[in-house]
Write a protein that binds this DNA or RNA. Structure first.
Lengths: 214, 214
DNA sequence: TGTACATCAGTGAACGCGCGTTCACTGATGTAC
DNA sequence: TGTACATCAGTGAACGCGCGTTCACTGATGTAC
C-alpha cells in the first residue's frame, strides 16, 4: 500500500514534470496561483494549494519566494507585464496619433480585465499596502505611459504636458471604471448592452476634443 | 489567578455593554467588521475577531447571522444604504435638473470611497459570487437610480430613455474608476493634483452635452 | 573517461496558530394567570 | 403583586481543519582536476 516500490509501472509517475528538479517551478507556481485567484478570488489562494497544483511539496515554494506576499507580488508583476504588452500591441495596430489607437488601448485594458478578472482585481488590491514594492509601481506607471504616449501623439503635444496628463487620467478613470463594473456587476443589464468599441471611441472623442479646464 | 471570584472590584467589568443582553449586538458586530475591513482589507476580517471587538464570545455572532458570508452581506447592505443616502443628499443640495446635481452625486460617491475604502472595495468584490443575494442587487440598482434620475432631469427625458441610461452608465463608469484609482493608487501623482469638483463638472458637461451615439 | 565535491532544488514531517462552527448550558426578560 | 414558564441572547469549551513556515535531510546536476 505505502512504500510500494514494487508498483512503479511505467505510467505511475503522477508528478507533472521530471522527477526531482522540474524545469521551471517558479513559473509553474505563478501559473497555479493565477488559476487559484481566478477561481477563488484574491486572498482565496494558499501557498499549500498552489504547491499541490504544481505537484510539489508544500515547502518547495519557499525555495523560490520568501513568503506568501512575495508570491502574490510575483503574480501581479507578471500580469502587469502582460497588460502592458497587450496595450502596446493594441496601439501599434492603429496609426500613431489616431483616435483609434487611444480607443484600442482602452479596449485592450477592458478585455484584459474581462479575461482575467481575478488577477485584474488582485493587481489593484495589491497596490495598497505594498507601496514597499517600487518595481510594481514602476510597472504600473509603464502601463499608464502607453496611454499617455498615444494621447500625446493625438493632441500633438509632449507626453509631459499637463493637459495630456489630465486627459490621459480621465480616459484611464473611465476605462478602469468600465472594466470594474464589467467584471463586478456581471448581471447588470446596462453592461450587457454596450458595444465596447463604439463606446470607447465616443469617450475618447469626448475627452480628447473637449476644452481644457479644471 | 484563574477562578478569581475574589477580584471582582467595581471597575473590573471590561464588557463594553450591559452584562448579559447588551442592546444591539447585531449593529455592533457590523460596526466592528466595518472597522476590521477598513484596517485589514476585505477578507482580512474574522468572525472571532469581530466578536472579540464587540466584547462577546466567539459563538455569539451566530445568534444574529447564519455564517461568515452573511455577516459580510450585512455590512455591504448597510454600506449601500448609507451610500444611497449621501448620493441623494448631494443631489438634493442643488437645483433639480442642474449639472451641479449630477456632479454632486459623483462627488458624494468618490468621497464615500475615500472615507471607507475597505468597505467600498468590499461592496464590489462581494457582488460577484453573491448573485444569490437579490436584496444587495436591488440596493445597488437603487444607488444607480439616484444618478439616473438626476441625468434624466438634466436632459429633460424620462429615466427609462436609453440615452439617459447610456449616459448615466458612462458617468458611473467614470466616477467609479476615479474612485478606485483614488483609493488604490494612493501614491500616484496624477491623483493628488486633481480638483474633484472641477473635474466632475467637466466630465458631467462632456458626457451630458455630447452627441448621442455608441 | 572517472572521481570528488559544492551547489541547488526538492522532500516530508513537524510546529503552533487562529479560525468557523457546534453544543449543551444559563441567566435575563416578558407574559399569563 | 406574585409565581410559573417560555423565549431569547448570551457563554465557554470543544472539534477538526488547513494554513504558513521551519528544519534537517537527500537526490540530481555541474564543474575541477
Amino acid at each position: 500500500m505505502w512504500n510500494d516500490t514494487s508498483r512503479t509501472d511505467a505510467s505511475a509517475t503522477v508528478t507533472p514534470k521530471t522527477g526531482y528538479h522540474h524545469g521551471d517551478l517558479r513559473a509553474q507556481l505563478i501559473a497555479a496561483v493565477r488559476d487559484l485567484v481566478e477561481t477563488h478570488g484574491p486572498d482565496g489562494f494558499s501557498v499549500a494549494e498552489a504547491a499541490r497544483r504544481a505537484g510539489v511539496s508544500s515547502a518547495a515554494p519557499y525555495k523560490h519566494f520568501k513568503d506568501r506576499p512575495e508570491i502574490l507580488r510575483g503574480v501581479v508583476s507578471e500580469a502587469m507585464d502582460r497588460l502592458r504588452l497587450v496595450m502596446e500591441a493594441a496601439a501599434a495596430a492603429h496609426p500613431t496619433g489616431s483616435l483609434e489607437a487611444v480607443a484600442a488601448i482602452g479596449l485592450a485594458y477592458v478585455d484584459f480585465a474581462r479575461a482575467e478578472p481575478g488577477v485584474f482585481r488582485l493587481v489593484f488590491s495589491l497596490t495598497e499596502g505594498h507601496e514597499d514594492a517600487p518595481d510594481l509601481q514602476t510597472k504600473g506607471e509603464g502601463c499608464f505611459g502607453v496611454l499617455v504616449q498615444a494621447v500625446a501623439a493625438c493632441l500633438d503635444l509632449p507626453p509631459g504636458n499637463p493637459d495630456v496628463q489630465r486627459r490621459s487620467y480621465m480616459l484611464w478613470s473611465f476605462v478602469h471604471g468600465h472594466s470594474f463594473l464589467n467584471i463586478d456587476m456581471k448581471t447588470k443589464v446596462t453592461t450587457a448592452e454596450i458595444d465596447d468599441w463604439g463606446y470607447l471611441m465616443t469617450i475618447s472623442r469626448a475627452i480628447l476634443a473637449g476644452s481644457a479646464q479644471s
